[in-house]
Design a protein around this nucleic acid. Sequence first.
DNA 1: TTAGGGTTAG
Length: 656
Amino acid sequence: MTSQRTALLICSRRTALMGLMPGAAGPDPEEADPVASSTRHSDPMRCRMDSTSSSAWSQATRKSSQRCLKASSAASVAAVFSPPACARASTTAAAAATNSSYAALRSSTVASIPPPPPRKRRRSSLSDDSNRIAPNSTTTPSQAGPSGENMRWPNRMGIRMGLHSISCIWARAQGPELVSYSATASMTSEEFQAAMAGKKFSSYHLAAALRRELDPAAALRLFLNPPTSATAPSSAPFRYSLRCYDLIISKLAAARLFPAMESVLSRLASSSAPRPREQLLCRVISAYGRARLPAAARRAFAHPAFPEPRTVRALNTLLHALLACRTPLHDLLAVCRDARIPPDACTYNILMRAAAASVSLEHARLLFDEMLHRGIAPTVVTFSTFVAALCDAGQLEDAFELKGVMVRQYKLSPNAYVYASLMKGLCEQGDVDAAVRLKEEMAGSAEAVLDSGVYATLVRALFRVGRKGEVTGLLEEMKGRGIVADRVVYNAMIAGFCEDERDPSAAFAVLDDMKKSGNKADAVTYNTLVAGLCKLGRWPDAAELVEDMPRQGCSPDVVTYRMLFDGMCAAGEFLEADQVFNEMVFKGFAPSKDGVRKFVQGVERGGDVALLELVLCRLAKVNALESSGWEKAVSGVLNGPSKLRLEKQLDSLQIA
DNA sequence: TTAGGGTTAG
């Protein structure tokens, strides 16, 4: 298996050197695309004929595959995984001791925490149709943003009336003849007095006020209308500093207020302000990546507000943003070629991650070979990326082998990321003991610092294999090492109680402990609880919890709604599911295809033609119904008395 | 905020 892979790697070596990136060796344009080229040269016989030009990693892999994997690999792995006898004894003793202590802890905490409150009739967040506002321009998923892509504007688009507005009113009451625009709540008294007393309100003051303003909409108003004094010369335009532009653009980007941000960028492009640094461009591109707006990210990369030439840093930011948008490797390579910027290790790391995720590990290896050929040294990130990809593919043996290669061949020590991936891989195979031993190896490493993520992985794995009794001991050990249990550790415990133990009460007890320890529950926390309750058929409790989330400082996300929706459908509560669906549409979230299918089938089986008609129309508005669902559902409805009404509505629909 | 892992679903 490994030798086959090595042969493939060697055979593909020639194609890799043909040049994926500008400046790479090999002018053959026919083989510029690694995806196409590797396909063309997939004949293994032909590959072996070119075996003299393998990369360092190829050679290392080949050698180790011959030596380690067949003969000594098992022995070396066994050596790593076999702790001394004393360690084994202490581990066993600790496990035995923790079984009882953890059970005691759990029973005491669970007993002190009441179950979630009984479900009341939900009306506040899941209002009925008569009060439901149709999806508007700020929430419709099909809304075309500045990029022309489908996007969902966050609720923060709404302008809040808070301290800012109050300060405006107060300032105007003090003397509207003096100040054309009031200071905001974020302004210091000195800044405000500067404006009030006719002193120059400079870009320095504006930058200070913008820095303090937490509300992006208020910051934008301040930026567009900086305080000017009636006693100061009114003809002189306000001179914005680059810092002011930087602050407001960064704030708007972080808040995903993209139309406003684009407007400020255009203003910057035509202004006489100094040209901004590329760091700001990177922030803009990253914001578009996080918002899953790849076309907008590409346009930002070429925005005239930012002076040419672009550096590899901006290119890498763009690639990373596009990768977050699941842009295929082929398109990422095209971006690299078009940019004509020499790549660095980071560039290759991103491309290799894309290759492993969307094409194959072999393509990632091609890129690795090309990277070496260009004289770019792999970094610890390169190896952690590869190790994670190998573990995801279930190739644990290769992943461990690569860990050895990075040490021996490249003198790089595995870090926490490498260990975390390997431990996750072992846990997924059910070998928790090996994962625990790897954790001990990590503890003895100078470079790999043990952190909460490692313990979270082990906690989750112990629950999965039915060894929750050992969790308390593990957490005690973590505490003894000075590692504080964070949100991820608590989430792992909550997931264990919900999924493996099917014990939501215990999970709620952990949630309570989590809050008491100062850790804020996030969407993952609540989604886990919602899923656990729904799987037990306790959808009313799940609905209550979802309704309570905003009060707890965490907004439900698309996963939350999908799980609640699916849970209600599974329980046959289609009227309730319809309300959730309505709210999802309002917030711009689409239900899962599977959920929609079950929903339509359930409503159809229920025979409520009016509800089915309503549901179909709503689904069509968000383009969430597959054609097969349409055919089935419509054929059922057309047999009913509302045929004419439905036909009229169908005619009026615009299906994207 | 140029790159990597660990807790949720699919």
